[in-house]
């Protein structure tokens, strides 16, 4: 082979090989659509509007068969009281399923604390529920494929498949998962998947008389929730965990964990 031919062939060979295989792969339209579906459920909580009545918690428990007498719940309401000298008091007795009817703040074993009206700088309620994260830690840790995320972004538990190992309960940075006392499997908020998939709103949204809770489609620019998330100042909980939560809060303070 002549030197000139060798160089020619080598150049053709190298340029041919350097085209990466992925560039030649045909794009599957189904995969592209799945990465950007036109439905992505998101939730919006307005902490200014919440009055701490706890009807959402009670409604959720009845709708989803979580025993009222068991101290576990798919959604709960926390009370934050910040005093003028910088103290942060917080409680959520039984997830606030019976509302807040006392000024005493329940600190469990260390007793009850009272902040007098004069001492209080600000005080508000924060409803919590599953954040249906875009990269859910709880799903990644499941060893059997019992918990998963649907195409529209809701994290569910397959009750027939769950072995009850509890990894997901430990894995969730928000503590929204618990062990179902009757079903004996991991349980969590499903955004009322049976309701939102059939044109209804969630039980907690419906039970809220004050409009503190809203659910909507984050991919629809005309959706009231999506509009607020895009145009207003909203916050998410524990952003630093990188789970990309999809429950947005209006009026979130740094004291809220």
């Amino acid at each position: 082979m002549k030197r000139r031919d060798f160089l020619k062939h080598a150049a053709v060979f190298v340029s041919g090989v350097s085209v990466s295989l992925s560039a030649l792969e045909l794009i599957d339209p189904k995969e592209v659509l799945a990465a950007n579906p036109d439905l992505r459920w998101g939730f919006l909580v307005d902490t200014y509007k919440c009055v701490g009545c706890g009807f959402c918690v009670k409604g959720c428990k009845i709708e989803n068969d979580i025993p009222l007498e068991a101290n576990v719940t798919r959604t709960w309401v926390e009370r934050y009281v910040m005093t003028k000298n910088g103290e942060v008091l917080m409680d959520s007795p039984r997830g606030a399923q019976d509302g807040y009817t006392s000024k005493l703040i329940d600190h469990g074993a260390s007793g009850k604390k009272l902040a007098s009206d004069k001492e209080i700088a600000q005080a508000f309620f924060v409803p919590k529920l599953c954040n249906q994260c875009s990269t859910p830690a709880c799903v990644q840790v499941c060893p059997v494929g019992a918990t998963y995320q649907t195409a529209d972004g809701v994290v569910l538990v397959d009750r027939k498949w769950c072995i009850g190992c509890g990894y997901c309960i430990m894995g969730c940075p928000y503590g929204v998962r618990f062990f179902h006392p009757v079903e004996h499997v991991a349980d969590k908020c499903t955004f009322c998947y049976h309701r939102i998939s059939n044109g209804k709103t969630t039980a907690c949204v419906q039970a809220c008389a004050f409009g503190a809770r809203q659910i909507g489609n984050l991919r629809d620019p005309n959706d009231p929730v999506a509009k607020v998330v895009m145009k207003q100042r909203v916050g998410v909980l524990r952003d630093e965990y990188g789970t990309k939560p999809n429950v947005y809060y209006i009026g979130l303070n740094e004291e809220v964990r």
């Binding site: 409604g59 009845i62 709708e63 990269t135 859910p136 799903v139 990644q140 494929g145 019992a146 918990t147 998963y148 995320q149 649907t150 195409a151 569910l156 397959d158 009750r159 027939k160 498949w161 499903t190 009322c192 998947y193 049976h194 309701r195 998939s197 059939n198 209804k200 039980a203 419906q206 039970a207």
Partner: peptide
């Protein structure tokens, strides 16, 4: 995030609403 039994999604959707 999506390794699961597809039929379970339908099971959740089929739950009857109370409210």
């Amino acid at each position: 995030f999506g390794y699961h039994r597809l039929g379970n999604e339908k099971e959740w959707q089929a739950q009857t609403p109370r409210y």
